[in-house]
Amino acid sequence: MSTTVDLDKSATAPTFTGISAGRKARNTVATVLMTLAFLIALVPLVWVIWTVVSQGIAAIASSSWWSQSLNGLLARQAGGGAYHAIVGTLLQGLVCAIIATPIGIMVAIYLVEYGAGTRLARATTFMVDILTGVPSIVAALFVYAVWISIFGLPRSAFAVSLALVLLMLPVVVRSTEEMLRIVPDDLREASYALGVPKWKTIVKVVIPTALSGMLTGIVLALARVMGETAPVLILVAYAPYINFDIFGGNMASLPLMMTVERTNPTDAGADRLWGAAITLILIITIFQLLAAFLSKVTAPKTK
């Protein structure tokens, strides 16, 4: 009876001790703070989208919004539509894409296939990074300085497209470069082994393999630049009518329509302002969805 053994008690002190209250508390606080940071970021996103939708939905619900311009309407007159601005935005974006895409793809091909490791390639990579950070207003001023001040050409939608090229180019280069880099070298080697010249290997093997991601990147880049306001503000004047001529005359675009109608204090002005805002968001959303769709459709088929 004198030697009772408590079988439930361990003979030695436990090797692992529980986590102290202080550490637990700090862990909890950190988790809460980080989750909170994420939730805080969602507030403006939801708020902005809600604002635009609730204010603009009435304007775009009318059928004339999508088929008519504001030609001949007074500032306070309701009615009319944003057709002229939609046309302008799409047209300027399209021209920009036509110029920026081939250059961007060729730069990416140079960086991945030809220049790897050379000094020019390093300089190019650095300059693409810098170009990513060039403010849109500086791009617009540059085009103004060359196109309008030095060449003496009038302000036009084409000048806007040129400025947008500067903003779109680095995004295209970056995304294409990433996509080209993940094309397996085996594919290239197999092609070379069959005696296919390098350029044909790139065009027929490397690009089709990377096409899915490249298209996504290009469409996303286009969606970004179409919302740019600074270039249209500086390089082309607003027109309330429809204009398809990108080399001459005034042309509207959705961001430009918004900056103009912003100073219109009437109800019609507010309708137009938020209607243009929701239209712009809709167009950008459609392009984003298009990018996701393209990447699905063009993904290389695995057998």
Partner: peptide
């Protein structure tokens, strides 16, 4: 093709200088 690719790379470098 090589010339076009290299030229595009050089173009970007020149672009920043031109700005």
């Amino acid at each position: 093709f090589r010339f076009l690719a290299t030229g595009s790379g050089a173009f970007v470098v020149a672009l920043i200088g031109a700005i």
